[in-house]
Amino acid sequence: MGAMIEIQNLQKRFGDITAVDGVSFDVDRGEVLGFLGPNGAGKSTTMKMLTGFLPPSGGTARVGGHDITSDALAAKRLIGYLPEGAPLYPDMTPEGFLAFIAEIRGYRGAEVRARVDDVVQKVQLQKVMRQPIETLSKGFKRRVGLAQAILHDPQVLVLDEPTDGLDPNQKHEVRGLIRSMQKDKVIILSTHILEEVEALCSRVIIIAGGKLVVDCTPAQLAAKSKWHNAVRVEIPKTESARVGASLADMFGSAAVEQLATEDDDVSLLVSTKERRSILSEISQRAQSEKWKLDGLHVEHGKLDEVFRELTRPTVAN
């Protein structure tokens, strides 16, 4: 059996605009795939095709072996989907709405009640079950949206910007929820928040200009940063000239960069072109030359910087 989700050469054109241009990837059970890209890069469009809302202009998307266009119902049964902005019926109560979702997902009688109760436990909606959805706070609305997506315990969960517009506490809750579900499922989520990718995802895909530009793990992505394995040396101002010269001697003057100074301390950032690990070399030199060190830190690549690096050229086109 193939992967749970197989996307091959997926394309979407709106008139003259090509929103998604030949995207291919597979996702297996247990993977949490982070979908990154600037606004308008084609993330949402890809998700809309994967969930069967938009028909692709070319290529195929298969969910659990079912083609999303020719075998749409079978594919849709496997998917739980939270569309961007979590649209809901404002006049309905969460109780009525979730019961409707349970019924349309094929549950009957007592099962409906059981399913709704179960999912309400999971997302903590008990308090607002009988209020019209339009009167709920943003956080509760998002939870209702999540509840409808996970109600039938789907094998594939597609979440379009699940934490967008939430406060830090709510974001934390939603992430916890996603983390608790990742076992045995395929989770695909799109986001603008790179720390979310680091915290949640086992894999990252970056889309820019409708094309897939990166498909790797968050760690590999961070390793693409030019600051990956760079070492930050914190020293008193009085030492900066001597240490700076010594570092330039070791790695070349281009490798040393003076960061913003605060009070009496100076931070020097040392990186190599090949991004190799240089901490031990520096600490040996520091010992032998008796530097007055205030701190020595290894930097890990910053995802947002890699993100900008990877997506900017295509956006500029």
């Binding site: 119902l73 998917i79 569309p83 649209p87 349309i104 997902r105």
Partner: peptide, 14 residues
């Protein structure tokens, strides 16, 4: 207008 059509049309209905 409310985007609920996306919700509706990704449910297993024709």
């Amino acid at each position: 207008k409310q985007g609920t059509i996306e919700l509706l049309m990704t449910l297993p209905v024709t």
